[in-house]
Amino acid sequence: MKPKAFRYHRPADKADALRMLAEEDEDARPLAGGQSLVPLMNLRFAAPSALIDLNACADLATITVADGVLEIGAMVRQREAELSPVVIEACPLVAEALALNGHPATRHRGTVGGTIAHADPVAELSGVAVALDAEIVIERQGGRRTVPAADFFLDALTTVVEPGEMVTAVRFPVLAPGTVTAFVETGMRGHGLAVAGIAAALRIAGGRIDWVRLAAIGVSPVPVRLAALEEALTGRALGEVESAIAGVADPLGDADLLDNLEGSSAYRRELVPTLVARAVRVAVDKMGVAA
């Protein structure tokens, strides 16, 4: 198999990359890990005129924590973020989600910025970004904007990133002490692509859920924040979790639901409360370890 020919550029740093992106035509694409773009090129579903290979840009591959924000550079490998003690300490949900993303060999190449920018409906990290109100940093030559995750994803494989722009970092909140997290998903195979998954983070005070954030991947073309379930669970005792979830008639609200070979929209609608209950249980079970 052979992709269509393209111009190849290998910038040495971010500034160089943004300049090349500005100089190239509208069909040029940044190349991060290539784990989603290259399959599309091999199948000729994508035929970029030029690739701007970001793999030599060390300044896009940093992980920092400052002022309550964990900032992960776009070119940080998924496997590196998954195993990073800094990430695990600041926002363990990121590491937990990445451990379910693809396979070791794809995570070695695949990047944090790449999975966010590709916007696959079943990308685990996109769910974490929406659950935790992460911010996506988007840059062009001479310009930079920061977009809340809730506004970043427009449709399957479609984001607010414009030609000439690229994702340069993702900013996750550092979770408060005592926060417990879980990412649970289900799929056709144990370690395969998810049909649907839930990102969950919560805190317990006095035996009750004090704070909770939930988002679903795989049920809709974009990640869905589960605000009605968050509201229903807040203030509930741990023994009331299942009944609180069952009490929400329509947790997905007016979200468009996916309906495909992996599962019908009815199946996905049923999965959400089941997976949320499981995610809360998995997260709460970690309190013994965290305490």
Binding site: M1, R10, Q35, V38, N42, D53, R109
Partner: peptide
């Protein structure tokens, strides 16, 4: 480990 079908030789 990496998939050699998803990496270009120039890389």
């Amino acid at each position: 480990t990496a998939r050699s079908c998803l990496t270009f030789a120039v890389q």
